[in-house]
Simulated assay, not measured.
Amino acid sequence: MTSPDEPHDVSSGVSSGAPATGAHGLGPHVVGTRVVVRRLVPGETGPTGGPAFTDVLGVAETWWPDLVVRREDGTAVTVPHALIVSGKPVPPRASRLQHVPGGEVQRRVRGLWPGETAALGDWLLQVSPPHEGRVRRRASSVLAYGSPDRPLGEALAAIQDWYAARDRRPELCVAVGSAEETALRAEGWTEPADFAGHAVAVQVGSVARLRRALGASPHTAATGTVATEHGPVAGAAPDVERVRVSVTASGDRIATGLADLRGDWACVHDVRTDAAYRRTGLARRIVAGLLDEVAERGVTTVVLHVLTTNDPALALYAGLGFEEHHTATYLGPPR
């Protein structure tokens, strides 16, 4: 059965019982977003003889019991609520990756998966074998960015024939708000029943910038030992490599994550933490380890997919410095 991508099992530092304080309007809702905060500096006097203030700019990682802001250089600043003078969310800093077309970002990821592909103009048809017992939408759907090489009705008929010959139901991946989405919905294509209410945030990051923000990653975690494995991906192109970083405790794997890489791009996926060990920083440690491994292999850009309904994962990746490139959804034929 096909299932939504990506149900990362992570959690953030949000505490729903922690209200915003003062008139600044900051609160749990800013976790995972970029903020600027003006704070009092206790015991110091400002240039005019009054209280001293300082500004902190970075991504809010937790709100309760204190606001923690991680600067771009990787340092974390703890700001007690009582010292906050003012603050507000600010737009993320633009990066070169935002100028890369969505179709190119998605094709970089598609090139990592094993299976069969076929081109239909700009569109890419793909089927991949099940991964851990489930068919992944992002590896077994049509990447519909750009234009097919024929009228839309003919293209959709060819797609349905191609997937029927492989005993699969066709689904098309489109950018939300795109001309392709509008045209397909006009033809009656809608989200499959098991994807209704979902969308996928396609997130990107510069490996160098992410690693600077994360700082050095030790070979041990507070609750276990970190190990890495790497090797080829069965059925994929010969130059595709897979890296796994895992944390074990008492002989059991309690957290894990994968990164598939080719050339200077990689895709992070399947970051998971055992339920008993969530909220202990293991997901952050796994991603840091994956970034270290892919950097050693020459990767400069990393991509990941997260369901827009997965608030803990979105907060984690925003706190690490990932940027949302665009949002995608999947559409299936009229029922």
Rank of each mutant, 00 (worst) to 15 (best):
V268Q: 01
V142C: 13
T117N: 04
A266M: 10
A18L: 00
S250M: 03
G257F: 02
G74E: 11
Q98K: 09
G205C: 03
L57E: 13
W265D: 12
G224Y: 12
L261Y: 03
A179D: 12
L261P: 00
R297Q: 07
E61F: 01
D194R: 15
V202C: 14
D66F: 06
T309I: 10
E229A: 14
L26V: 14
D260F: 10
G289L: 04
L57W: 01
P51D: 09
Y277D: 00
V271T: 07
A295S: 00
P130N: 04
E181Q: 15
P91D: 09
V207N: 02
E44D: 03
P47N: 13
V14C: 08
L156G: 09
P114L: 11
A328M: 11
H99E: 01
V59W: 09
A237I: 02
E180P: 00
T327E: 15
G115F: 02
V306K: 13
R134W: 04
E296H: 12
H269I: 00
R212G: 13
G74W: 07
E104W: 10
V294F: 08
W64M: 08
E44Y: 04
V303G: 10
L304Y: 05
V142G: 14
T329S: 14
V100D: 09
P192K: 06
V243M: 02
H24T: 01
V142W: 08
L261I: 02
V69P: 09
E323A: 15
G121H: 03
A213V: 02
L26S: 05
T2G: 05
G263M: 06
P65Y: 08
L26R: 07
G49T: 03
A118M: 06
S141N: 07
D274M: 00
H326R: 15
L304V: 14
P218C: 01
A175K: 05
G25R: 04
V271W: 06
Q98V: 12
R185K: 08
V302W: 09
G103H: 03
A196I: 02
P89N: 04
V306R: 11
P19H: 05
V287W: 05
P192T: 10
G43N: 04
M1W: 02
V109R: 07
P170C: 07
R93A: 12
A199Y: 01
D260I: 08
A23F: 12
V142I: 09
V142F: 04
G298Q: 06
V302L: 10
L172I: 14
G197W: 05
A328D: 15
R242S: 12
D5A: 05
W162E: 03
S95V: 13
S3R: 13
V271P: 10
S3W: 05
R150D: 11
R71T: 15
Q126S: 15
R136P: 02
T75N: 06
R93M: 07
W265S: 10
G32N: 02
T228C: 05
P129T: 00
A175Q: 11
P218E: 13
E61R: 11
V68D: 01
W189K: 04
R108W: 14
P19L: 04
L290V: 03
D292G: 03
L124Y: 04
V30P: 08
D55W: 03
A175F: 00
H29C: 01
V37N: 01
V127W: 03
Y330W: 07
